[in-house]
């Protein structure tokens, strides 16, 4: 099971020099991720600047005025903490092909990103979602905000079992019904649903002012396609629908083209809606994805 690696010290040591890339939340905390200076109400005094008409008089430094005869405005660093939510698709489709251990791969990536978050003292939680007994169910982990709390995610990660169908719109509704403050949401899934479903879900989450990042996960065998039999019968693990298949000589090529087409459509949607899209195909590419793809696409810095 790949997710077990997420708590190995050697693996975590390689993550220590990375940090989550956050844009829209515009945190102003000191650290690698400071992308823009935001003045806000906080505790930490940042600077002084000259007062100009129309600015908030609450921030005038009257002691400085008494000493220097100059109206100075105190500026503070906003101390808002970024909430990082890792949404893991735990539907039945994540369990096949069994040899790919797609769910384990998704959980490993999710846990790695959670580790990056708690390293920066952000409030991080993992949520697995899937249809259980006809209803969308979101299983939530503890909220971890310190590095020492990271091992407490282990029972949650090990306890996730793939089951049920994927309904991303229902997941978004359930999520937004309970969450309030905007933060960073990272959605990890194989996105094997109707495009309108994930488009609707991502639009709603973005509309709630969350910064959204998408990690598109597929297994090695699943993404390449390999057909030995001339005739075969396939069954959709989520819907139970059965289809007869007669792969021709170009079946592998057609399959890969279809996979590419679905991934391209998702990437295109994300590009148009300012959502970071990262393709993570095949657990064998884990090192390249974490140290190459994620920084290149801005998911980590």
């Amino acid at each position: 099971m790949l997710e077990a690696r997420a708590f190995e010290p050697e693996f975590l040591a390689r993550l220590d020099r990375l940090a989550l890339g956050i844009k829209r939340a515009r945190t102003a905390r000191v650290g690698q991720r400071t992308l823009g200076r935001v003045q806000g109400i906080g505790i930490e005094l940042e600077n002084f600047k000259n007062y100009s008409e129309g600015e908030d008089l609450r921030f005038l430094d009257w002691n400085a005025f008494a000493r220097l005869d100059d109206l100075l405005l105190r500026t503070y660093r906003a101390t808002r903490q970024v909430e990082v939510t890792l949404l893991i698709d735990a539907s039945a489709s994540m369990a096949v092909p069994r040899a790919d251990d797609k769910l384990g791969f998704a959980l490993l990536l999710g846990a790695a990103l959670a580790y990056l978050g708690v390293n920066e003292n952000d409030a991080v939680r993992m949520i697995s979602f899937g249809i259980r007994r006809g209803k969308m169910r979101l299983d939530r982990s503890l909220v971890c905000s310190r590095r020492e709390m990271y091992p407490q995610l282990k029972p949650f990660v090990n306890g996730i079992r793939p089951e049920g169908a994927t309904r991303m719109t229902a997941m978004a509704d359930e999520l937004l019904a309970q969450r309030r403050s905007p933060g960073l949401i990272i959605l990890i899934s194989d996105f094997l649903v109707e495009p309108s479903d994930y488009e609707n879900a991502l639009s709603r989450i973005s509309a709630a002012r969350h910064e959204v990042k998408v990690l598109h996960v597929m297994g090695e065998r699943e993404s390449t396609g390999d057909f030995h039999d001339r005739m075969m019968r396939i069954r959709d693990i989520e819907t139970g629908e059965i289809r007869e298949l007669a792969p021709g000589d170009d079946a592998g090529e057609r399959y890969r083209r279809r996979v590419e087409e679905l991934a391209e459509r998702l990437r295109d949607f994300c590009g148009r809606h300012a959502i970071t899209y990262v393709r993570a195909f095949g657990a064998g590419n884990l090192d390249r994805i974490i140290t190459g793809e994620l920084p290149r696409l801005g998911l980590v810095v």
Partner: peptide, 19 residues
């Protein structure tokens, strides 16, 4: 024929069915 479980039939839409 052996039945193979797949993650989604969407991936096989461009592969032909027996006539």
């Amino acid at each position: 024929r052996m039945t193979v479980d797949v993650s989604s039939l969407m991936l096989f839409e461009e592969i032909g069915a027996p006539v």
